[in-house]
């Protein structure tokens, strides 16, 4: 029997400073339990995290980089969504 290629997982780690889980890399493991253990050994050898998520890479749907112009165009033209668009007199102070 030939062994199938070991599935790929994406690893997300939440560090101790209260930030969200952040993508740190990927690894191979045959199932979720082994993926978590491997993630601990590969990505948290120096106390990098307090929580790990592993997600099968095949479960991720990504936007197409070739379409990024069209994808993100709606935000480009809306400068009024940024605080600096609005003028507040200096006398009012920091807002």
């Amino acid at each position: 029997m030939s062994t199938p290629n070991t599935p790929l997982w994406e690893v997300f780690i939440r560090s101790r400073n209260g930030l969200a889980h952040k993508h740190v890399g990927s690894l191979h493991a045959s199932d979720a339990t082994m993926a978590l253990q491997a993630a601990r050994d590969i990505y948290t050898r120096r106390g990098e995290g307090l929580s790990i998520w592993v997600v099968p890479s095949s479960a991720i749907t990504a936007s197409d980089p070739a379409e990024k112009g069209m994808m993100f165009e709606p935000a480009e033209s809306k400068i009024y969504r940024h605080p600096t668009f609005y003028e507040v007199p200096e006398e009012v102070g920091h807002m």
């Binding site: 029997m1 062994t3 199938p4 070991t6 493991a29 045959s30 199932d31 082994m34």
Partner: peptide
């Protein structure tokens, strides 16, 4: 290590 890879794949 082949048997380990095979066993892990079979278990999964």
């Amino acid at each position: 290590g082949a048997w380990v890879r095979e066993a892990a794949a079979a278990y999964a």
